[in-house]
Design a protein around this nucleic acid. Structure first.
Lengths: 252, 252
DNA sequence: TGTGTGGATACTGTATACATTGGGTCGGAG
DNA sequence: CTCCGACCCAATGTATACAGTATCCACACA
C-alpha cells in the first residue's frame, strides 16, 4: 500500500543545493587546478549568502575534493603520488564492493539498471561521444553502487571515484581508451550476471589497473616530468576565468 | 630531511577547536546514543557563537560520527548491521595499511613510537587500568598510522576506528579481552619488526576478527535482542546530563 | 475521556554586520 | 635601482539578528 501522496519535495536546504552544484562542477572537470573558490564570488554567482556557500566548501574540503590553501579553498592539483594513493584505495574497496553484490545480480531485474547504463555506454562509444561516454560511465558506477548493502563502503567508493572523475576527461577523450574501458565494463557485467563475486572482483581489479595505466600514460605524454612524482598533473591549460592568478606553489 | 621547525601551532579557528572537543567527547564515549546535540546549548557551554558549533557539527555528521535526526544531530545508536559494516571496511583497509609500513619498520628507531605505545599498553594491562589501556590502544594505532605513506588511507582508517572507539569501552572493560587485544598488538608489532608485510596484515586481520567477535559477544550479553540486526547496541544507561529528555521515539 | 485544533516556544536555516588577518601596492630611504 | 615599511583592501572568521518550521501543550468540543 504505497502512500498515494508522496511527501512534498521540500527543496533541501540551500547549503545542500550549493554543495551538489559545486560537486557537479568539480566532477565535470569544469574547474582548473589551483583555481581559488571564494565565498563571496560563489555566493553572488548563485544568489545566496555566504553561509550556505561556506558550508558547502567546508564539506567538499572535508571530503578532499578541495584543499585549504591558507585561508580559502582551491581545486587540488593532483600529483602522480596522489593518483597512486587514490588508486590504492580504489583497489582495496571497489573489488570488495562489487563482490558483495554478485549474489544479487543473478536476477535480471536487479541487473536492469546496470545493463541500461552499460548499453548507454556502448551507444556513446559507437557515437564517439566522449562526454556522453563519461556520463554513462558515472551512471554505470551509480547503478551497481546502488546495490551495495554497506552504505559506508558506498560512500568511500563514491568519494574516491569522484576524485578521479574530475580529471577523467584527460583519458576518456581517447577512443582507444574508451574501447578498453567498455570492454572492462562488459566483463564486469558478465561476471555479475553469472553471480560470481570473485570473478567480478577480479574483473574490477583489472579494469582499475587498465584505467590507472591509461591515465598515467596519458599524463606522461602531457607532463613528462612526472617521474619525480611531485609535479602537478594538469596545470591550467586555459586562462583562469577571473583575474586571479593561480599560484603554483602549494602551501599544503 | 624532516623540517626541524614545525609550523608554529597557531591556535586554529574556533570551529576547529570545537570540532576537536566534540570529537574527543564522542570518542571517549561520554555521550549517549540518541542524545541530541543542539547548537545553542553547545555554543553557550563552550562560550562561542553558534557558527563554529554548527560548522563542527556538520563536519562530524559528514564523517558519520553524528547523524542528522530531522533538523538537528544526534549521537548515532550503532546497530549490529552498523558494526558489521564498519568491520567490513576495517578488514579491507587496515591490513593493507599495516602491510604498507612493514618495509619501514625493520629499522628500530622507526619502530620506536610503536613499541613505546605497546609498552604503555602492557603497563596498563598489568595495572588493570581499563581507561589507560584504551588510551594506549589509541596511541598504538596513531603510532603505526603515522608511518603509512598514503594519507587518504590513513584518513579512512582513523575514521572507522573512531566509530568503534566510541563504544569500545564496552569490550575493553573486560580484562580477558584486554589480554587478547594485547596479544594481538604484540604479534602485529613482532611481524612489523620482522618486516614481513603479509604476515603483519594477517596478524591485523586476525586481531580485527578477535576484536569484532569480542565486541559482538559483549553486546550480545547486554542486548540479547540484537539477533534481528536492527536494535541499537547501547541504549542510554544513565540519565542525560542536561534537562533534555532524549525522546525514544525518533521522528524518522 | 479522548481527540483535534490552535497557539506558543524553541530550534535550525539563512542573511548580514563586524572583526581580523594576510597580501598587495605604493612610497620613501639607502 | 632596490629594498623595506606602512597603509589599504579584500577575503575569511565570528557573532548576531531574523525567519521559518516543527514540536509540545493546553483547551475546547464531541
Amino acid at each position: 500500500m504505497v502512500p498515494l501522496l508522496k511527501p512534498v519535495e521540500r527543496s533541501a536546504g540551500l547549503g545542500e543545493q550549493v554543495y551538489h552544484k559545486l560537486r557537479a562542477l568539480l566532477r565535470n572537470g569544469v574547474t582548473v587546478a589551483g583555481q581559488p573558490l571564494q565565498e563571496v564570488q560563489l555566493a553572488e554567482q548563485m544568489g545566496v549568502s555566504r553561509t550556505p556557500v561556506r558550508e558547502a566548501l567546508k564539506r567538499l574540503a572535508s571530503e578532499g575534493l578541495l584543499v585549504s590553501d591558507g585561508r580559502s579553498f582551491v581545486v587540488p592539483a593532483l600529483t602522480l603520488d596522489d593518483v597512486n594513493d587514490i588508486y590504492e584505495i580504489r583497489f582495496l574497496v571497489e573489488p570488495a564492493a562489487i563482490r558483495s553484490i554478485a549474489k544479487l545480480t543473478r536476477s535480471p531485474q536487479v541487473r536492469r539498471s546496470i545493463e541500461d547504463a552499460l548499453a548507454a555506454t556502448a551507444r556513446a562509444h559507437k557515437a564517439g561521444d566522449a562526454e556522453a561516454f563519461r556520463e554513462a560511465n558515472v551512471c554505470f558506477r551509480a547503478a551497481w553502487l546502488a546495490l551495495v548493502p554497506n552504505p559506508r563502503l558506498v560512500r568511500i567508493v563514491e568519494q574516491y571515484s569522484d576524485h578521479m572523475q574530475r580529471i577523467r576527461a584527460l583519458t576518456l577523450g581517447d577512443p582507444e581508451i574508451r574501447t578498453t574501458v567498455l570492454r572492462g565494463l562488459n566483463r564486469i557485467t558478465a561476471e555479475l550476471a553469472a553471480g560470481d563475486g570473485d570473478a567480478a572482483a577480479l574483473a574490477m581489479r583489472e579494469h582499475l589497473a587498465e584505467a590507472k595505466r591509461a591515465f598515467i600514460a596519458a599524463v606522461g605524454l602531457t607532463d613528462n616530468a612526472s617521474a619525480a612524482g611531485a609535479s602537478p598533473l594538469h596545470t591550467p591549460n586555459r586562462p583562469v576565468p577571473d583575474g586571479n592568478r593561480p599560484k603554483e606553489g602549494r602551501a599544503r
